[in-house]
Design a protein around this nucleic acid. Structure first.
Lengths: 251, 251
DNA sequence: CTTGCACCTCACGCCGCGTGAGGTCCGAGG
DNA sequence: CCTCGGACCTCACGCGGCGTGAGGTGCAAG
């Protein structure tokens, strides 16, 4: 009844279905669709049943199933179509959600880059890094607050603050090495300067200060390894004794 | 100045950054991040510069760049960060759009399956196939119209129509084989029945009828190969002569 | 007989590692 | 001294879905 149609050869079936010959070979290789006959010389011959199966395969591929699962689906007819589709849809939606989260990150990055004008790639990495850290450790509101403070202070002030840290940290390290007691007035003056620098960044927000501390606690290994002249846990501990003397925490 | 920190060995760097040892090996293999030193016995030693570079790599990976492109970005500092990010974002959004289109298809499928109750996988494939065909050849409004007609007629009526086609087509094929002239009354009666069956599906909508014709024209190879007892171009041509006799087209 | 196309069978490449297999190095404990 | 365990080393295959050759055969037309 169905042998009226002459069987397809690969090329014909490929061009009829829009697939490539290689694809059909592949389906044969993995046992997903093997032609039900061959010519004596080995040429593949696909009959009506094969074509039908191929259409089913194409249908399932079109909605994103992997080949392995398609084979499974076509071999066992016990599976409930609804459940399969629902599960598949769920996975797909999760992937979409992940990618959208990534897109949001990229959009935020793009906005940051607008303000940074002609950023070369080195800066790009720093900005990404900062953006990622921000995401990990600060709430969106805190991020807005930090950005607002940055804009308010201006670029020059920010560079001033960075330069100040560049002086304070080596000085503290000196005192640590010499074993200066927490009661030393020079050290206490340094502690007050430290405190003001922290406040310049946090704007006096204790939650932000706490987040920064948490960030340092969890990331100090990489931070200290990658950037010289950054505080480490020992320095935080040392400064804590000084803050205890002059009263009040670091921020 | 930065050699105060002892260099990292792979395991330490891996656990500090959250990567795996294998990943660091891989980055070394492909020349993305080679440790700047080795112990005499060959153990990798990563210094501060390496760690910094790794952080940049992690940043760029976190926003989805492939390793090859990361290497390229990090080696040439001419590239504009904005353009890179914008391009990357664009590609990502396109991928998202594609996947969302797929999700929409799956949702539509899920809805179709609800009405089909306990569909096994075989039916699933037919429904997917039909859904995809619908998408290709019919506008959403036409799809709604077809679905509405289907619901109006009821399942029994649809099965009746299918059974009717199952009689009409072999009969026509008989006449074709015998060379019956278009003036033959039996054949003309068959043509009128054909016309009514088409109308049962299209609801008299000429646009839908035209789409069906286009679908057959473009897909007849696979349709005829996969399903016995379907009209082919020769049959359409033959019927056209009969419709010319009795006046009016097929639909 | 030759040309040329469609077909055949290997088999490697992609991307970002996971996961062994099989061997070496190193610090601590007996 | 030896030994033990853990961290390190270098291959090398596997994954998904084919693309892209390379090198050879089949078959109908000129």
């Amino acid at each position: 009844m169905s042998e009226l149609q002459p069987p397809f050869k690969v090329g014909a079936l490929a061009s009829a279905t829009g697939l490539t010959v290689r694809t059909l070979h592949h389906y044969d290789e993995i046992g997903l669709l093997s032609p039900s006959a061959r010519t004596p010389s080995g040429h593949r011959l696909y009959d009506a049943h094969d074509v039908q199966r191929l259409q089913q395969i194409q249908s399932l591929r079109a909605v994103g199933f992997p080949l392995e699962e398609i084979r499974h689906l076509l071999s066992s007819r016990q599976v409930s179509a609804q459940r399969v589709i629902a599960l598949h849809l769920e996975q797909l939606e999760q992937r979409i959600a992940e990618q959208q989260a990534l897109a949001v990150r990229l959009q935020r990055l793009a906005r940051h880059l607008e303000t940074a004008a002609l950023a070369p790639v080195g800066d790009l990495c720093r900005i990404i890094e900062a953006t990622l850290m921000m995401e990990q450790y600060f709430t969106p509101e805190q991020q807005d607050a930090i950005k607002a403070r940055g804009a308010m202070l201006g670029e020059q002030a920010i560079r001033d603050v960075e330069a100040a840290w560049g002086e304070v940290i080596p000085a503290v390290r000196e005192h640590m090495a010499r074993g200066t007691p927490p009661t030393d007035p020079d050290l206490q003056a340094l502690a007050r300067r430290w405190k003001s620098l922290v406040e310049a960044f946090t704007g006096g927000d204790h939650a932000i200060a706490a987040s920064v501390r948490r960030m340092y606690d969890e990331q100090h290994e990489v931070i200290n390894a990658a950037h010289a002249n950054t505080p480490d846990p020992a320095m935080f501990a040392f400064m804590a004794t000084v803050f205890a003397e002059i009263g009040g925490g670091p921020g």
